[in-house]
Amino acid sequence: MTDTTTTRPFTAASFDQYIAEGKLMASRCADCGALNLPPRAICPKCHSETLEWVETGGKGRLAGFTVVYIAPTFMIEQGYGRDKPYVSGIVELDEGVKVSARITGVDAAQPETIKVGSPVSVEFIETGEGEGRKVALAFKVE
């Protein structure tokens, strides 16, 4: 099996492909070492075009969150909404970069109990099968 880890383009499609494989990948600048999430094809810090994929450790802290009651259509289709709210948040990884993700391991009915700063670890939420299979990035509050 060919290792495509170093050859995939720095695109949203590649990022999603990694997520589907259960990997949260960031791009790292080979010249200045800056780590970026979402991945970039050009380093925003030094403008180098030499980048590499690196897998994050998947551990971090909750930087901000919300419990969504008025949901977008694709979440309504998954059964979420007023009667079944869900949690989305922004996580700061131990590596220092942040990412938007679903948040699990908390009680959406009691938002006051969810704390900014809580330690979290990555997980992947799978829905659908076959062609319709989707994997969403999530973090579980430990």
């Binding site: 999603d16 901000g64 969150f65 919300t66 008025i70 977008p72 990412v99 969403a136």
Partner: peptide, 21 residues
């Protein structure tokens, strides 16, 4: 869209996250 909306965020949700921080 590919990096924020997939996480289930809405616009009230983004500003709510700002509020929690």
């Amino acid at each position: 869209v590919p990096f924020e909306i997939a996480a289930g965020f809405t616009f009230p949700g983004f500003y709510a996250a700002i509020a929690t921080a």
